[in-house]
Design a protein around this nucleic acid. Sequence first.
DNA 1: GTCTATACTGGGATAGAC
DNA 2: GTCTATCCCAGTATAGAC
Lengths: 178, 178
Amino acid sequence: MRAAALRLFARHGFAAVSMRQIAAEVGVQAGALYLYTPDKQALLFELMRDHLEELLADWRAPDAAPVAQLEDFVRHHIRFHLDRPELVFIAYMELRNLTPENFAVIEGLRRDYEDRLEAILRAGQQAGDFAVPDTKLATMALIAMLTGVTTWYREGGRLDRAAVAGIYWDMVRKAVAA
Amino acid sequence: MRAAALRLFARHGFAAVSMRQIAAEVGVQAGALYLYTPDKQALLFELMRDHLEELLADWRAPDAAPVAQLEDFVRHHIRFHLDRPELVFIAYMELRNLTPENFAVIEGLRRDYEDRLEAILRAGQQAGDFAVPDTKLATMALIAMLTGVTTWYREGGRLDRAAVAGIYWDMVRKAVAA
DNA sequence: GTCTATACTGGGATAGAC
DNA sequence: GTCTATCCCAGTATAGAC
């Protein structure tokens, strides 16, 4: 059910997908879905929450210099996001369709992730490795740039994942370099 | 009507907004809207098309060196997007809700805009001013980074527009520098 | 655990009065 | 040009049979 909801939400948007469609994709009638979820909102919220919790659980800053930490972050971010383009899409596009309480939870998780990148940038700034006039702005700019890879990358295209990650890392490294 | 639709689509999403809501915002009954638009889809399409056409009409590359062209592009892009956060949001988020024919038109306009940035990067690469391993990737990365400013910038915040544009330009300049 | 059937609400769009 | 009224269809969610 979750896989079907994920696919349909990503393709058509949460508001445009009906419980009937999800049921058809699963191969049951709509009523049967309510054995597994209290409502459609919970389906969306749990997809987003689990996605962000996995993102946070999957990566910790290595015990290394800021530049090495940043490279690790960039390469992990790209790999993780390219592995889950549909979840990434939903987690960004469907924020408006969360109830206020659910939105607050998701925003908190997103903030936790941003804080990790900002901590790296601040450490590198203080160590003199980076020249970043504003670490918060740089955090937002870099995450937007990196996450954008999911909008254009296609498997089997001109560049493979390693090449893409290498080029992004090159741009990030130069952008924040002292 | 267009202003009301813009506001509501940006806040709740195209699929979640009803013609009745738009009518209420305008101060008429739903039926009256059909004097001005054939249907809800046209309302969305025209908002997006006019937005992108204005983006294209509003900027031409100045007759200057690639670095100066790039700076002009970056500052214009940020100014234009910060002036229209709702249109920017819709033009990206609601692509899925366009009919295939309308989607093709919007995609063409978007491509035209990307091509302008890519032309600058290619010229700078050939002139030896830039070191960009892949101009298409760099184009997508830079546009994602710059457009992301609309997701966090708030008027009256810690940084004003000029400061924000300056910091973004600094990151862009360094990211593509030879 | 899944189905059929349905309650209830609301959607887009149109007709015809004024 | 706008309103009221309505058509027809689809939505979420639930009840009760099997």
